[in-house]
Design a protein around this nucleic acid. Sequence first.
RNA 1: GCACGUGUGGCUGAACGGAUUAGGCAAGAGACUGCAAAUCUCUGAAAAACAGGUUCAAUUCCUGUCGCGUGCUCCA
Length: 477
Amino acid sequence: MRIYNSLSFRMEEFKTIKPNEVLMYVCGPTVYDAPHIGHAKSAITFDLIRRYLEFKGYNVKLVKNYTDIDDKIIKRANERGIDYLSLSEQYIREYEEIMNILNIKPNYKNPRATEIIDFMIKVIKILIEKGYAYESNGSVYFSVGKYDNYETIFQNIEKQENEEACEIHSEERHLLGDKYDEKDFVLWKKWKEGEPYWDSPWSKGRPGWHIECSCMAINILGNVIDIHGGGLDLKSPHHKNEIAQSTAYTGEKRFANYFLHNGFVNVDNEKMSKSLGNFFLVSDVLKIFDPMVIRLFLLSSHYRHSVNYTLDNIKQSERIYSRISKTINLINEKESIENASEEIDSLKLAIHKTKEDIINAMDDDFNTPKAIASILTLIKKINQYVLERNKEISQEFKNKFFSFIEDLDNIFGLFPRSIYQPKSGIFGKFEGGDDLVRQLLNIIKSTRKQLRKKKLYELSDQIRNKLNEIGIDIEDN
RNA sequence: GCACGUGUGGCUGAACGGAUUAGGCAAGAGACUGCAAAUCUCUGAAAAACAGGUUCAAUUCCUGUCGCGUGCUCCA
């Protein structure tokens, strides 16, 4: 299995620290606003990776944090005249709800920054003791000049250049404001009027953004982890700083063996972001599209690439999704017979082949577009066989097919049982499959059938249209 | 400016050092059908930013140029 490692700028064979276990940390959101499609892309990316690793037999411990204390949270809470905690609580709940709808598997742990302030203080203390950090006017900063090769992290430049870049700063050790170097970043931020604070040896205050993630990862998963993930926009300076401070603290060579970064969701070929204001909230998109369609849309381009959010593009995904679900329903509803033609073997073989293709695609840096293409090729084959040539299928085939769909769902999280089990087709529209509704619909269906038999098309079409208007699609045949 | 990534058909999006360059959407034609929908079949004599280089052979590797995106400031 090969994955692209942002640390080395190339594809690498994936090897874990412990056999069969993957320690994985993903940077979660700063909870001051509702999640947009960009957050969904990141979440779905790492959910996919996690699912695939589990499919490969790894026990994955995925930790994803919430940054629940930060300038923006404080600002917005003040604007609304509420406590910062109730603000972050509100958005954490919303985030979790949406993740659940998008079929994101629950994480191993979801720590919040404010839960481990004590540990952060301990780590900062040690960083000062080791000479990597300094206190200045009540705040504490990490000194990038004291850290070897700071500039080479995620920068494909030679060590010499790094030394040149840092030397200048370390020679002139005078303060620029509170810092010695512009790039020094804050570990502990001194309290200001109207802000929440925690006591520390340096001042009343709160932790800096970068130290939070390092501490949560180390605290829960340990000094060195397998995979660290996040959006491409976190690469620098966030992940860069995380690496510097974490390895400075632990003394290890690496903080994470693999850094993975997902690409953006673009709007008009520009990054969707809160600061640009060009974002679409997941909750709004969910009003128009099925969550699985959103998932498929975001998986239809490679995780490292950007995906352009347009109505047309997401509609394409909707079409593809319905195509696949229709075939799943078709096989589900079709009666199997004892002695189906031997030709069914070729279909069984095709399933086997498709599964292999998917595994190969996914082993190659999680190539979902390729994997999806091979699913569609299989779907076409099945449709040809069952619909066009109207051939019978065996129970054995059905079993094989559904075990395949289950694999697909395990990997992509796209085909939960609910789409083809108890409530399928039109009944799916009614939560819980109300018996009365079910019976009523059956009556309507059989009435229409009789009308059509008697060639009373006008009336039967009218019924079809009326049902359509209230959101029930009927397809004859 | 530095770094990372990217540039494939009307759109989306893969593979691959060579001989037939996936898959999907949209379009057109046809089959089926009372009609619609769904499904299937066929078609588009299809395309690889530009310029060099390596090679028997490059869309694929290398170099340069240009375009685009992102990071270097909060952001998934």
